[in-house]
């Protein structure tokens, strides 16, 4: 298989590291190689976070070559757009619609929409925030929901069984059930 390159982007505190751990564990369960690169400290403090994830065979660099990204999961639209310098014409964007305003700036939704329209490849805009808020009473599950979406729609080379098992092995016992629900919830979309 060709190595699969994924970027998860969001704002510090949106749970990108948990997602990354679940994906890594799932890859391992499927016997795949895995490498990722994340940032801690100052870079996390409410700033933009971008994690690089690579799944496949004999992976060398933990960093993705610009243009070679297969899938971008944007937990926030502006952060999704910020990863454009790593995307190519074929990159798929899976974007959580909910905007998190940048401090001191008015949100101009129509401008964000205009920019998203300019993306040449496939774009899936999902209102993960509202869906998880409504059905699970907690929008913190947006990330897991989007991962579920990616798995169910085969945007990522991981099976739902391995992701579920990985989740059970990675997440604190008290939160497993709700996370599994978020994964299943994504099935209908």
């Amino acid at each position: 298989m060709n190595n699969f390159n994924l970027i998860i982007s969001g704002v510090g505190g949106q749970g990108t590291i948990t997602l990354l751990k679940v994906i890594g564990r799932a890859a391992l369960l499927q016997g795949l190689d895995f490498k990722s690169s994340e940032l801690h400290g100052l870079s996390q403090r409410g700033g933009s976070v971008k994690t690089h994830i690579r799944i496949g065979e004999n992976i060398s660099s933990p960093l993705i070559i610009p243009g070679e990204t297969d899938l971008i999961i944007g937990l926030e639209p502006q952060e999704a757009l910020r990863t454009k310098s790593f995307a190519g014409k074929k990159t798929v964007f899976l974007i959580n619609e909910k905007v998190i305003p940048v401090q001191g700036k008015e949100v101009d939704k129509s401008e964000i929409e205009k920019w998203i329209k300019k993306i040449p490849g496939e774009v899936k805009l999902i209102n993960a925030f509202s869906i998880t808020q409504e059905k699970l009473k907690n929008s913190l599950y947006s990330g897991i929901f989007l991962l579920g979406y990616a798995v169910h729609n085969k945007l990522i080379p991981l099976s739902i069984d391995s992701v579920k098992k990985a989740l059970e092995e990675t997440i604190k016992p008290d939160y497993i059930e709700e996370n599994l629900k978020a994964l299943d919830l994504a099935k209908g979309f």
Binding site: G12, S43, G46, G47, P66, G67, L81, Q103, W115
Partner: peptide
């Protein structure tokens, strides 16, 4: 050559900030 999409230059920059 790297085939990369053009960045959105107007995108508001997020500074790290207090929680």
């Amino acid at each position: 050559k790297l085939e990369v999409l053009e960045e959105e230059k107007e995108l508001a920059k997020r500074f790290p900030g207090f929680c």
